[in-house]
Simulated assay, not measured.
Amino acid sequence: MRFQTPLVPGTLIRRYKRFLAEVELADGAIVTAHCPNPGSMMGLKAPGLKVWLEPNDDPKKKLKYGWRVAEPGGVMVGIDTATPNRIVKEALEARRVTELADYGTVRPEVKYGTNSRVDFLLTEPGLPDAYVEVKNVHLLRRDDWAEFPDSVTTRGAKHLYELSDMVAQGHRAIMLYVVQYMGCGRFTLAEDLDPAYAKAYRAAREAGVEMLAYGCDVSPEEITLAGPMPVIVD
């Protein structure tokens, strides 16, 4: 996924009201940027952090910058929670997700479960339908372990139970964790932050839901899906 406009660097002054960030640009200008992330953003919101913003000249948008990437310690991290779905769609259509490469039809946002829409429904003659939910991952607290979630996610647990129902109906169901934190080599759960999600994860795994994690390549020009990484959950 290429950005419509190459990102520009800045220094984070503060993130506030969840969806707003005050940033100082390289020329000293102070701007307000949209922060497209409702989570805690643990480790990615400290004042003084280097960040990357996407400018826009859309007259319909009140804010002329969108925060897309953080750069803690020189490592690029995508923070936009909408990005994973876009890059997964590209990868699925190009058949670059190895475990799902046999599917030729990719349909986003299909109704299923209880008042829900699955991120992607994959179909192919002769194969069971594959229901794919995508989760954004950008929490790193130790070594090269990517963790999910970074805060309590009741909605995330609901998706796991709904995927389990799809397996019971004879379909494939896949939870795909997209790690936007470059340099991570393994994925696990942040069980201390949301024990209920961890419980739902184990129940879904036992029910037959497939758990996948893929890394990303992040730059000021684009974010693309990279290779798979081990999912390690006891």
Rank of each mutant, 00 (worst) to 15 (best):
L100I: 04
V179F: 04
F19S: 13
L212K: 03
P47K: 14
G48C: 09
D234P: 15
H159K: 15
V51D: 00
S40Q: 13
L212V: 06
K111D: 13
Y161N: 02
T98C: 01
E93W: 08
A21Q: 02
Y197P: 00
I79T: 03
T32E: 15
T11F: 08
L44H: 01
E109I: 08
A26V: 14
I87Q: 00
V209C: 03
A29M: 12
A200E: 08
M229G: 06
S151C: 15
R86Q: 11
R202H: 07
A46D: 14
T105C: 04
R15M: 10
K111P: 06
R107C: 05
G185S: 15
D58H: 11
A204D: 00
N115L: 12
Y201C: 03
F120N: 04
A101D: 07
M229S: 05
Y177V: 05
L122W: 02
E210G: 06
D57M: 05
L139D: 01
D129Y: 03
E22H: 13
R202A: 05
L140Y: 01
V231N: 05
R142T: 09
D27E: 14
T154G: 14
L121H: 01
D165A: 15
A130N: 03
Y181W: 09
T154D: 10
A226N: 12
E162R: 08
V8K: 10
Y103E: 00
Y112G: 00
D165T: 09
D234V: 07
T188L: 05
Y201R: 04
G183E: 06
V8R: 07
K61Q: 11
R15F: 04
E71Q: 15
G73I: 13
P47R: 11
E99T: 09
V31R: 07
R117I: 07
V77W: 00
Y197M: 08
G227Q: 10
V51F: 00
P220D: 11
K50G: 05
R96C: 02
L63H: 10
D217N: 14
I79G: 00
E109K: 14
Q169K: 15
V88F: 03
F187Q: 02
G215R: 07
G183Q: 05
G126K: 10
D119Y: 04
A33N: 03
L163F: 09
R14E: 15
D58F: 09
E54P: 00
E206T: 13
G227M: 06
T153V: 15
G66M: 12
S164L: 04
N85T: 10
E191A: 13
A204E: 02
V88Y: 01
N136R: 13
G156V: 09
T105K: 08
